[in-house]
């Protein structure tokens, strides 16, 4: 029952990371729920500047699938009503929320744009960015990702893509941030670069408590380039440090 939960995970039924987090809970009562069920279990009471949210459970918000294309208008409205209720409840509850939404939106200050993300995190080293649909970017763009699943692609290979004016990097590193903990997913030698600290700084500025922060590692001593901040890390993102991440999430949600 959602009413008795210490932690409510709002997710899709086939989200393996949610299952892993729930499996790591020991004393805490973790309940996983779909968006609509969670919204219908919530009550928000407002009177002046005071607001209360019931049930008083901590919340872990996981990625939600977009609504099916050309779905029924009533279904779309119902989904939007549930989404707005959970957004409000997660913003207003006094219990811990992983990636608490707020005035700026569901995913804090994150953006799919690397340029916007760079600006909001205050990092140096912006590189030009191009978005495309069935058109090749200019030759200055050497690094391409599919906008549907963020995998690396060749120019024009995916139907929708984002490219950056960067040389192919020597390699990659990813850091999973949970609150004030940061976990690198490899043990590769990065020289003097401190990507854990850089990742924590970036996520703090974006208002995130859980994120997968991806960095491109250039040749030589040049600083790493922020590639993406994903506020909804996947199971494969977290797999190398899964136990650390799951425990940190439970700790963060039961502060």
């Amino acid at each position: 029952m959602l009413r008795d939960a210490d932690i409510i995970v709002i997710d899709e039924a086939d989200d393996p990371l949610s299952a892993a987090v729930a499996a790591h809970a020991e004393r805490e009562h973790v309940v996983r729920a779909r968006l609509t069920d969670a919204a219908r279990a919530m009550t928000i009471t407002q009177d002046g500047p005071a607001a209360t949210v019931d049930p008083p459970a901590a919340l872990l918000l996981r990625p939600l699938r977009p609504q099916p294309a050309m779905s029924d208008a009533d279904d779309r409205f119902s989904w939007s009503e549930a989404f707005a209720t959970v957004w409000s409840a997660a913003a207003l509850t006094d219990r811990p929320v992983v990636n608490r939404p707020g005035e700026w939106g569901w995913s804090a200050r994150t953006s799919a744009s690397a340029v916007v993300t760079h600006r909001r995190t205050g990092l140096d080293g912006e590189a030009a960015e191009a978005y495309w649909h069935a058109m090749r970017p200019d030759p200055e763009f050497g690094f391409h990702q599919s906008l549907d699943d963020w995998r690396l692609v060749e120019a024009g290979e995916a139907p929708f893509g984002r490219s950056r004016a960067l040389r192919r990097p020597r390699g990659w590193e990813q850091v999973i941030v949970v609150g004030t903990d940061a976990f690198r997913v490899t043990t590769a030698d990065l020289g003097a670069r401190d990507l854990e600290s850089d990742s924590l700084r970036a996520t703090a500025r974006l208002g995130l408590s859980f994120a997968a922060v991806s960095w491109a590692i250039p040749d030589g001593d040049e600083p790493a380039v922020l590639a993406r901040v994903n506020p909804f890390p996947t199971f494969p993102d977290c797999r190398p440090v899964l136990t650390d991440v799951a425990r940190a999430l439970i700790r963060w949600l039961t502060r």
């Binding site: 590189a127 030009a128 191009a130 978005y131």
Partner: peptide, 12 residues
Amino acid sequence: VRHPWRITLHPD
């Protein structure tokens, strides 16, 4: 959106 498109953003 009916046709191919491309948009380029230069930070500076």
